[in-house]
Design a protein around this nucleic acid. Structure first.
Lengths: 159, 159
DNA sequence: ATAATTCCTCAAGTTAAGTTGAGGTCAAGA
DNA sequence: TCTTGACCTCAACTTAACTTGAGGAATTAT
């Protein structure tokens, strides 16, 4: 009958079973600062039960397309030494929700632009000026100037 | 005064200027089958104006989180030899839109689960059974069993 | 006709997010 | 106790999506 050495302490394998992550992924996440296990006398990692939730959060955030660095940023809002309280989780969840909302809004905006573009058939020049320019959340220093149907489809006055 | 060799033909540099992509990225995309330029007598690539739109589509789709492979799949719906017509673009745009809608719905569903989780504070066990299980679009063979607050927070009857 | 650009290929490097494997230690159960 | 399974570290490999650089050819500008 396998039971935790000390109630509330989990081995890396336990945590893997409970989150669905691989052991190697959990070690990797530790390296990236997403979890901070302690070590037992023999040098093995020991996790808190709260880490199950921490890693679940990581997985969900990844599904939403957040990078590990961004997730680490969010997780800094949780206390490190003690187990997070209800208030701690509520705070981080709200923060996260607002990030999500922004992402969803951005997707919808892009989709609506695409819709407009379908409407015009994406072959006329003037009627399809769908810029990206206003998207605050656009990737740094990259991205398309226009959506579909760029004004440069028009060769210019010399033609 | 720089002008296209033949009306409608663009060098890789022209295309880079017009899409905001780097020259190397365009070569890379060719390799991945996203564009199919011809070559001039000297072996240099020559693109059609329609490729501006093709690459804009690639950029937008990437913003939405589609991989190059997925985008290539979509672009197969466009004719390869001739320039795409309005009907061609309408078809692909509609296809794409439905993919988008599914993605947005999925995000919203996840967000709502997260909301429920905020409601319960994510610390009670039984009240927070937010499974991923039903998500058809979940990544293959991976992902969290539960959202935040796994039932395994409950140590079991032996405690 | 030259010089300056731009283009070409091919190989190697880069970042993110992990996985895999070698070689060795720790812990749990019979 | 002893063996087997779980764990440890560290280095190297993997895929996606590109970038960078070397060495050289084609175009364009003067």
């Amino acid at each position: 009958m396998k039971k935790p050495v000390r109630a509330g302490d989990l081995t890396i394998g336990d945590l893997a079973d409970r989150t669905g992550l691989s052991v190697s992924a959990i070690r990797f996440y530790e390296e990236k600062g997403l979890v901070h296990p302690t070590r037992n006398s023999g040098g093995q990692r020991r996790f808190m039960r709260a880490d199950i939730r921490r890693l679940s959060f990581v997985l969900v955030a990844q599904e939403f397309g957040f990078s590990i660095a961004e997730i680490a940023e969010q997780l800094k809002l949780l206390p490190d030494g003690r187990a997070p309280t209800k208030a701690d989780w509520t705070r981080i969840s709200r923060q996260f929700r607002s990030h999500l909302d922004r992402r969803i809004e951005r997707m919808k905006a892009l989709r609506d632009k695409l819709d407009a573009c379908i409407g015009c058939g994406c072959l006329s020049l003037k009627s399809c000026r769908l810029y990206n320019a206003g998207d605050a959340a656009a990737r740094h220093g990259r991205g398309p100037r226009y959506l579909l149907g760029d004004q440069s489809d028009y060769l210019g006055p010399e033609e």
